[in-house]
Nucleic acid binder design. Structure first.
Lengths: 196, 196
DNA sequence: CGACACATGTAACACGTTACATGATTTG
DNA sequence: CAAATCATGTAACGTGTTACATGTGTCG
């Protein structure tokens, strides 16, 4: 979905061809989310099938340019004017992992947290190093890339805060319910239906 | 991928059947990430194909229980002991949207930011309301669900901070490069290859 | 010339979602 | 009894990844 919308957004600037679309996407978002060229072509095919873009035959250089249709413009515009829904967020692997770690016996939750903290802080350092590298916004592409970097930094910081917070909560819960306290049964079944 | 690993993790608790796996997953993560039952069955089939689980025929109640194989245990263990890689984070739709919004002319960046802020703050309110609802951890399932909620809260707060930060940066950039300043060309092409 | 970047595709596969079919069991 | 829930599946589709095939242009 992200890729589809991103291509439409880029085409708002004017017709472009596949390879160029990837280059422009990566110029604006950096190496953060590499975009496979193959996917650009398949996505363009699907967008054409859905009537959101049209292929204008070969240009000067033999490149197959794609342009937005009226429906495509509409779609791009509506993507920008509709907020990303936070009521059905994408599955967060780390949150799932820790939620299961605290409920499955025999998992060293503290170790899981600690190791993730190390990994995330490492990533954070990489980000700040990258920030120093690309000095300042000569063009809009650099501004975009820099904003993406910031978003990664904010997310990583929040993740670390959550890890700290979780560690404290788990420690507290462990005190209140020490090891050996009867758990709800290793393979609890839905309460309603009693069988036989 | 998340689902696959989650099922393996749950099966560490002991053999379970499909419907039960979904129930246990949702008990621990809440309504945040609803898990389609169908996917549980298809995923179990794939896990069996890959030798990570085995189906133990019908039990007392006629339910098809699945159990971890040795390889399955190994896989689950390694999931918990390997940090989530932050070097290739999942694509963040909001970050992509804003990165493109600032580079595509004719998009009201301030409006995009403002509308997202409203949506995210709304979600944040829902989360805090939910927190009040489920009082405190009688069992481990509630603890897990509560941790997941916290993670959503931390992420939403970080998102809002990032939006504020981005708004400020964009405003600053707009001052430095007022409207009308020549942009790098509507459809810039990769620099290297000059044609004809 | 040979390596590499540019450029366009295709095939196979993994994962996820939606929707449907089917039947047993429980509960008002 | 009727409706809801429990329970197991399957089919079709959308999206994304990897890998390969194929050819052109550029540069050392």
């Amino acid at each position: 979905m992200s890729v589809k919308n991103a291509l439409l957004a880029l085409l708002e600037q004017g017709p472009m061809y596949g390879y160029q679309l990837r280059a422009e996407f990566e110029r604006r978002t950096g190496a953060t989310w590499p975009l496979n060229v193959g996917q650009v072509y398949t996505t363009l095919t699907r967008l054409e099938r859905d009537g959101l873009v049209v292929a204008a035959g070969a240009d000067e250089g033999g490149h197959v340019h794609y342009a937005l249709t009226e429906a495509g413009h509409e779609e791009a515009r509506s993507w920008f004017t509709t907020p990303v829904s936070r009521s059905q967020p994408p599955r967060d692997e780390l949150a799932i992992k820790l939620a299961l770690a605290v409920t499955v016996s025999g998992v060293d939750v503290a170790a899981v947290i600690q190791q993730q903290r190390v990994a995330t802080m490492g990533a954070l350092q990489d980000y700040t190093r990258l920030k120093r590298t690309a000095p300042d916004q000569q063009d809009v592409g650099d501004l975009a890339w820099s904003l993406v970097l910031d978003s990664l930094v904010f997310a990583a910081e929040a993740e670390i805060r959550w890890l700290d917070h979780t560690e404290a909560r788990v420690r507290r819960a462990a005190l209140a319910r020490p090891a050996g306290t009867p758990q709800p049964a290793p393979a609890s079944r839905p309460a309603k239906q009693v069988r036989r």
